[in-house]
Nucleic acid binder design. Structure first.
Length: 277
DNA sequence: TTCCAGGTGGACA
DNA sequence: TGTCCACATGGA
């Protein structure tokens, strides 16, 4: 267990509620359990911007510092927005202060956002958890057992009935197609992580069931291409209602993904979301 | 009960 | 190229 003081924007509740991660679990004491690839973490907010991490110094430096994107200065990114020139985005930045774009596992992000299509966030969380329990390896840590996110091979080994039991609906075949492409090496997530955003989108949309929106989510939340700009039903409403003259993407490059996330969180919370998950 | 959700593929003009 | 619709499911 180590204690780390974080000077930049960092709000666990807002990150957990920002629709980018589906497996964070909040405990009674206000701490979160987070599972990331092979690692698990318990993180507890303390006083004065300090957080207790249930890991070693080495693990923090090698895994969690990157996972929370603590090398980026989000305060500066927020300050780039002028309240006079763009009052809506300035309000969104202030409201969502503390959100960070996590550097999540690309494979988990791909499957999670394939599952996300045309569903609300509580339903996505439920299916992702069912999939982990059905196919992921069970592990133990100091707080009990949990399941890792299943590998492509583990998903492919799952009988059709077991996959259907994860309540994926018509997305079952999309999940299998993605697992097949990655298992066979047709899609190399490690390679596209180092490619530019355009090439990443092209490669991702070659998978059956992955369109432009899901590809942008994977690009942003899994490959950390922070200029990616996923447009879902909420962002479409924002663009229609708040930017009838057009959204100035060029102006906000290369941080469009971060601003997108502030706007998504702000608008969804403000206008009622139909879920409280 | 009805509406809607971090959409996409496929048919058709 | 653009538009329309079916697709599964569950939360509110």
């Amino acid at each position: 267990m180590i204690e780390i003081q974080i000077h930049d924007d960092f709000d666990l509740d807002r990150i957990a509620d920002s629709g980018q991660c589906f497996r964070w679990v909040k405990n009674d004491a206000g701490s979160y359990r987070i599972i990331h690839a092979e690692a698990s973490l318990r993180i507890q907010p303390l006083e004065n911007r300090t957080f207790a991490f249930s890991c070693s110094e080495n693990e923090y430096r090698d895994i969690w510092h990157d996972y929370f994107d603590l090398g980026e200065d989000y305060r500066s990114v927020r300050k780039r927005v002028s309240p006079k020139e763009d009052p809506f985005l300035a309000r969104a930045c202030e409201y969502g202060k503390g959100i960070r774009i996590l550097r999540q596992d690309p494979w988990e992000t791909l499957i999670s956002f394939i599952i996300s299509q045309n569903r609300n966030i509580p339903a996505i969380k439920k299916s992702v958890e069912l999939l982990c329990e059905a196919a992921g390896r069970r592990r133990e840590d100091a707080w009990g057992s949990y399941c890792q996110f299943p590998s492509p091979e583990e998903i492919l080994a799952l009988p059709d009935e077991a996959l259907a039991a994860c309540r994926l609906g018509y997305r079952c075949r999309y999940v299998k197609a993605a697992a097949m492409d990655v298992a066979e090496g047709k899609l190399d997530l490690g390679r596209i992580q180092n490619e530019d955003e355009e090439e990443a989108i092209r490669a991702l949309t070659s998978i059956c069931g992955v369109g432009v929106k899901v590809a942008n989510c994977v690009s942003l939340f899994g490959l950390h291409h922070i200029d990616a700009f996923p447009v879902d039903v909420w962002i479409r409403r924002i663009l229609e209602n708040e930017y009838p003259g057009g959204y100035p993407k060029e102006k906000y490059s290369p941080y469009n993904g971060i601003y997108q996330q502030y706007m998504f969180y702000y608008y969804r919370t403000l206008t009622g979301r139909g879920d409280k998950g």
